[in-house]
């Protein structure tokens, strides 16, 4: 335990407006949502001397709001809240499944969707699902509000495109125009809980009446510095029938969009083989 609480300053805004104002004044402060990642750095002493912007009193960011064209998740909504919400369970099952694989129950009770995004880990468990649902990150800052598509929120490992003073206020999930024919989320970690993913897959497909693929949204996590949609694979498959030949050809295009590495958790070879297996099995309808 190398964290030194007395060397740190805690700022505790009581509303969203106050949070933005306080953060603008102290842009070096570290926003604290659920704290499940922040506390790891704290324990290592990496936060000593820093200011913390404690968001726990910003009640308006804790709400899940179902609106006409989608669901608005306040940035402080926890992984446990997401799993329990009936509309999310029905309309966004991949996100619900992803939240159930985050850490373990204790982490899911504290960890938040906004914190998960702001932390920008390459292995962020909710990102492939958010990517295929084409979520929008709603941001608030000293210059007002803006909406950032999920595909533009990450700049690299542990880096977002948030500007100084900006905070995530919500994540908007648009209802898909049509219900997907098939959807799957799969996380591959090392153990049954408290695992950091080696690869993660989320996939949605829409099949037309004539048997051709109307649309596909496919994404992997942990295979690149940020979550990656498989745009090349999706483009290739659109308008084709899913056959062994087309699926094999599609899988060859995976590496256009992902570039896994060897690290202390796994190998490039394993990540590629398993990711390809998952993609092929999903397209064949063999993975639930």
């Amino acid at each position: 335990m190398r964290g030194d609480a007395k060397s740190m300053t805690v700022l505790s805004p009581r509303s969203a407006a106050e949070a933005v104002k306080t953060y603008a004044k102290v842009p070096t402060a570290l926003p604290l949502a659920g704290g499940t990642d922040l506390m790891v750095g704290w324990n290592l002493g990496q936060l000593n001397g820093r200011a913390v912007l404690d968001l726990s009193r910003v009640a308006e960011w804790r709400r899940i709001k179902v609106v006409g064209d989608g669901v608005d998740l306040g940035s402080l909504v926890t992984h446990a809240q997401i799993q329990a919400h009936p509309v999310l369970r029905k309309r966004f099952p991949l996100l619900v499944a992803a939240c159930a694989t985050v850490g373990a129950a204790q982490i899911q009770n504290r960890g938040t969707i906004g914190g998960n995004i702001a932390n920008a880990s390459p292995a962020g468990d909710t990102f492939p699902a958010l990517a295929v649902y084409e979520a929008t990150v709603r941001v608030i800052g000293p210059n007002g509000r803006r909406a950032v598509p999920m595909s533009e929120i990450f700049a690299g490992v542990k880096k977002t495109t948030l500007k100084p003073g900006e905070l995530i206020e919500a994540v908007f999930l648009p209802f898909p125009d049509q219900t997907p024919t098939r959807g799957v989320f799969r996380k591959v970690g090392t153990r049954a809980a408290q695992a950091i993913s080696k690869t993660m897959f989320a996939g949605l497909i829409w099949t037309a009446k004539n048997g051709e693929l109307a649309d596909a949204r496919l994404a992997f996590g942990s295979l690149a510095p940020t979550v990656k949609r498989l745009y090349a694979v999706e483009g290739f498959l659109r308008g084709r029938r899913l056959t062994d030949v087309s699926i094999a050809a599609a899988a060859e295009l995976m590496t256009n969009d992902v570039s896994p590495i060897d690290d202390i958790r796994s190998t490039r070879e394993y990540r590629l083989i398993v990711s390809r297996n998952l993609l092929i099995a999903f397209l064949k309808g063999e993975v639930k």
């Binding site: 790891v40 373990a104 153990r191 049954a192 809980a193 695992a195 950091i196 202390i264 958790r265």
Partner: peptide, 26 residues
């Protein structure tokens, strides 16, 4: 699961995040 990984003579996965022991679910 468990494998201490050494690089230049030092364990580089010396945390419970990356040195993986079984949980009760395992």
């Amino acid at each position: 699961l468990e494998e201490p990984i050494f690089k230049d003579g030092v364990m580089i996965n010396a945390t419970f995040t990356n040195y993986v022991i079984p949980t009760s679910l395992d």
